[in-house]
Write a protein that binds this DNA or RNA. Structure first.
Length: 676
DNA sequence: ACAGCTTTAAACAAGG
DNA sequence: CCCTTGTTTAAAGCTG
C-alpha cells in the first residue's frame, strides 16, 4: 500500500545538498580515463608471443646452423678437404642402421603422449616440444633419405643380378625395410600432427601479429595419403632425387651434393627430408645473414641448459667451450648436418604453414561465431567480416550488404581494424582503448543477441561492450527470471558477462548506480528484503531516438504486439533462464543456441515494441498506461509483507543459484583495485 | 557550433 | 565507523 512506487522514488531529489561540491574534479576526468583504459595490458597473447619467440629461435637456430656450416665449409676448403662425394662403390648402408631407426631415439609415442597431456606449457616446454618436433622431422627426413639409398642400392643390385641372378634375400630385406620405413613415416607424421594439434589446442599456435595471412595451400596436417604416395614414388624414383632436393634448397648456401654419400658415424643416419613437400613449399629462406649470436656467445641458440640443441642431438655439454667443441666436431659440415639443416628449414616452414593454416581456421571460427549469416559477400574477405560482425543481424535487415556505419566501426567484439590487411590479432582484442563507440542504441542492434553471440568473447577479452550502461543494465534485468535484480546482482551480471567489468569496479559500479538513478526507465522497487530494480520498458524505449521510425504498420500493431510481448517475453525468458545455467558452468561456446534464439526473438519483439512505443509515447509523454505492463506485476508481488517468502525467495534463490556462486569469484579482484 | 546523450567522478545521505 | 545503496551534480566526450 504505502510502498513508495518506483516513479516516486525517482523524483525525491535531495535538492541542493551539494551545490558547492561538484566543480573541482574536472581536471582528472579525461586524463584518468585514457590512462586507465590503456594501462590494462592483459596477458592473453603470451601464447602467441611465445610461439613467435619459439619460431624465432628456430629461425635463429637455422641461421646459426647455416653459418656454422658455411664456416665449416670455408675451413674445409681452405684445408683442402673436399666435400664428400657420392660414392657408388661404398657398401652403403648396413642393416644395423635400419634397426637403429626403428627405435626412434628422440621421442616415443608414449613420451609424446605424456607431453601432450601436460596442458600447460611454459616457454621452455614449448621449446622442448619444438625441438622434439624437429627431431621427428629429422627422423622423417632420415628415413626417407635412407630409403632412397636403399632404393639406389636395390637398383644397383638388380642391375648386377640381371646377369648373375642370385640371392633374393637382400631384396627381401630391403623390401621389408622399405615397408617398415613407410610405416614409420606414417607414424611420424601422425606424431607430428599430434604435436601440432597439441600446440594448437594449448593456444600456442595462435595468431602472430604482423605475419601476413598467407595464401594457404592445402598442405600441412602432416601428409595426406596421396602426398605420401607421391613421396613414395618420388623417393622410389631414386637417382635424381638427390638433384631435386639439392635444387629445391638451392637458396640455402649449403653444398648439397653430398647428400647421398652416406657414412653416418654412429646410429645416426642420413635421410632425406620428406621430399614430397618439395614442390609445394616455395622455400622461404630467411634473408638476413646477420648472425648476431656471435656477440652473445653464451646465449647460443644451439646451446641451452647445458645441452646441445642441435636438432636431435641433446648432447650434454658442461660449458660453452665444450659445447663449441661438440658443435664443431659433431655437427660439422657433412651430409648429416646438411640434411638436418634442411630438415630444420622444413620444420620452420611446416610450422609456418601450420600457423597460417591455423590462423585461417581461427578466422573461420571467429567468422562463423560472430557473423550471423553465411554472407557470401563477406566470405572471400574473412578479414573484413570482422567489421560487420555483430551488426550484421540488425543492419542486414535495413540494408543487407551496405555497411554504412562500418567505417567507424564500433568496438565490435572482433575489433574493427580499419585499414590494411588486418589480421585479427589477439592483441587487438583487449587493447580497446578509450575509443568507445556504441551502436546499441543506434541501428537497433539487439543487445541480447550480440551478447549471446559474443558471450565467450566478452567473458574473456577485456573489451568494452559497445553498449551503454543503460542498455546493459536493462539487459541484465531482463535476463533475470523475474526481470528484477538487486543492485548487487546487476553488478554480478556485469562481472560475469564481461571481462571488462572485472576491473575498475569502483568506476563502473558508480556508473551503474548513476544510471539506475538517472534514467527513469529503471524503476526501483522496494522489497521486504531490500530493493530490486526493474525496467520500465516504455521509458527505456522513449529515450531512444527512433531511427527507423515512422513505420505505420508497427504503430498499428502496437497494442497487440505489446500485449504479446509480456507473456512471450516471459516464456522466452524462462527458457533463457534455463539455458543460462549451463552457460555459466560449461563456459563453452557450444550452447548459446537456444539462448540466442530466444534472445533474438525477444529482441525482435522488443524492437517492434520499440518503434511502436516510441511513436506512441511521443503523443503521450510521461508515464503511459503501458508502463504498467512491465513493472506492475513485478512491483506488486513483493510488496506483500506476508508473502515475502514467495516472491522474495524467488528472487533470491532463483537468481542466486545460477549466478551467485560464480559471481563471487570475480568479486574480489577488481574491488580492491580502486577501493583505496 | 550546438544539443542531447553517455560516461566518469565525486559528494552526500540513509541504512545496515 | 565502514560499507552498500541511492541520489545528485558537474564536466567531458561523442554523435548527429
Amino acid at each position: 500500500m504505502m510502498q513508495e512506487s518506483g516513479t516516486e522514488t525517482k523524483s525525491n531529489g535531495s535538492a541542493i545538498q551539494n551545490g558547492s561540491g561538484g566543480s573541482n574534479h574536472l581536471l582528472e576526468c579525461g586524463g584518468l580515463r585514457e590512462g586507465r583504459s590503456n594501462g590494462e595490458t592483459p596477458a592473453v597473447d603470451i601464447g602467441a608471443a611465445d610461439l613467435a619467440h619459439a619460431q624465432q629461435q628456430q629461425q635463429q637456430a637455422l641461421q646459426v646452423a647455416r653459418q656454422l656450416l658455411l664456416q665449416q665449409q670455408q675451413q674445409q676448403q681452405v684445408s683442402g678437404l673436399k666435400s664428400p662425394k657420392r660414392n657408388d662403390k661404398q657398401p652403403a648402408l648396413q642393416v644395423p642402421v635400419s634397426v637403429a631407426m626403428m627405435t626412434p631415439q628422440v621421442i616415443t609415442p608414449q613420451q609424446m603422449q605424456q607431453i601432450l597431456q601436460q596442458q600447460v606449457l611454459s616457454p621452455q616446454q614449448l621449446q622442448v616440444l619444438l625441438q622434439q618436433q624437429q627431431a621427428l622431422m629429422l627422423q622423417q627426413q632420415q628415413l626417407q633419405e635412407f630409403y632412397k639409398k636403399q632404393q639406389e642400392q636395390l637398383q644397383l643390385q638388380l642391375l648386377q643380378q640381371q646377369h648373375a641372378g642370385k640371392q633374393p634375400k637382400e631384396q627381401q630385406q630391403v623390401a621389408t625395410q622399405q615397408l617398415a620405413f613407410q610405416q614409420q613415416l606414417l607414424q611420424m607424421q601422425q606424431l607430428q600432427q599430434q604435436h601440432l594439434l597439441s600446440l594448437q589446442r594449448q593456444g600456442l599456435l595462435t595468431i602472430q601479429p604482423g605475419q601476413p595471412a598467407l595464401p594457404l595451400q592445402p598442405l600441412a596436417q602432416g601428409m595426406i595419403p596421396t602426398e605420401l604416395q607421391q613421396l613414395w614414388k618420388e623417393v622410389t624414383s631414386a637417382h635424381t632425387a638427390e638433384e631435386t632436393t639439392g635444387n629445391n634448397h638451392s637458396s640455402l648456401d649449403l653444398t648439397t651434393t653430398c647428400v647421398s654419400s652416406s657414412a653416418p658415424s654412429k646410429t645416426s643416419l642420413i635421410m632425406n627430408p620428406h621430399a614430397s613437400t618439395n614442390g609445394q613449399l616455395s622455400v622461404h629462406t630467411p634473408k638476413r645473414e646477420s648472425l648476431s649470436h656471435e656477440e652473445h656467445p653464451h646465449s647460443h641458440p644451439l646451446y641451452g641448459h647445458g645441452v646441445c640443441k642441435w636438432p636431435g642431438c641433446e648432447a650434454v655439454c658442461e660449458d660453452f667451450q665444450s659445447f663449441l667443441k661438440h658443435l664443431n666436431s659433431e655437427h660439422a659440415l657433412d651430409d648429416r648436418s646438411t640434411a638436418q639443416c634442411r630438415v630444420q628449414m622444413q620444420v620452420v616452414q611446416q610450422l609456418e604453414l601450420q600457423l597460417a593454416k591455423d590462423k585461417e581456421r581461427l578466422q573461420a571460427m571467429m567468422t562463423h561465431l560472430h557473423v550471423k549469416s553465411t554472407e557470401p559477400k563477406a566470405a572471400p574477405q574473412p578479414l573484413n567480416l570482422v567489421s560487420s560482425v555483430t551488426l550484421s543481424k540488425s543492419a542486414s535487415e535495413a540494408s543487407p550488404q551496405s555497411l554504412p556505419h562500418t567505417p567507424t566501426t564500433p568496438t565490435a567484439p572482433l575489433t574493427p581494424v580499419t585499414q590494411g590487411p588486418s589480421v585479427i590479432t589477439t592483441t587487438s582484442m583487449h587493447t580497446v582503448g578509450p575509443i568507445r563507440r556504441r551502436y546499441s542504441d543506434k541501428y537497433n542492434v539487439p543487445i541480447s543477441s550480440d551478447i549471446a553471440q559474443n558471450q565467450e568473447f566478452y567473458k574473456n577479452a577485456e573489451v568494452r561492450p559497445p553498449f551503454t550502461y543503460a542498455s546493459l543494465i536493462r539487459q541484465a534485468i531482463l535476463e533475470s527470471p523475474e526481470k528484477q535484480l538487486t543492485l548487487n546482482e546487476i553488478y554480478n551480471w556485469f562481472t560475469r558477462m564481461f571481462a571488462y567489468f572485472r576491473r575498475n569496479a569502483a568506476t563502473w559500479k558508480n556508473a551503474v548506480r548513476h544510471n539506475l538513478s538517472l534514467h527513469k526507465c529503471f524503476v526501483r522497487v522496494e522489497n521486504v528484503k531490500g530493493a530490486v530494480w526493474t525496467v520500465d520498458e516504455v521509458e527505456f524505449q522513449k529515450r531512444r531516438p527512433q531511427k527507423i521510425s515512422g513505420n505505420p504498420s508497427l504503430i498499428k500493431n502496437m497494442q497487440s504486439s505489446h500485449a504479446y510481448c509480456t507473456p512471450l517475453n516471459a516464456a522466452l525468458q524462462a527458457s533463457m533462464a534455463e539455458n543460462s545455467i549451463p552457460l555459466y558452468t560449461t563456459a563453452s561456446m557450444g550452447n548459446p543456441t537456444l539462448g540466442n534464439l530466444a534472445s533474438a526473438i525477444r529482441e525482435e519483439l522488443n524492437g517492434a515494441m520499440e518503434h511502436t512505443n516510441s511513436n506512441e509515447s511521443d503523443s503521450s509523454p510521461g508515464r503511459s498506461p503501458m508502463q504498467a505492463v512491465h513493472p506492475v506485476h513485478v512491483k506488486e508481488e513483493p510488496l506483500d509483507p506476508e508473502e515475502a517468502e514467495g516472491p522474495l525467495s524467488l528472487v533470491t534463490t532463483a537468481n542466486h543459484s545460477p549466478d551467485f556462486d560464480h559471481d563471487r569469484d570475480y568479486e574480489d579482484e577488481p574491488v580492491n583495485e580502486d577501493m583505496e
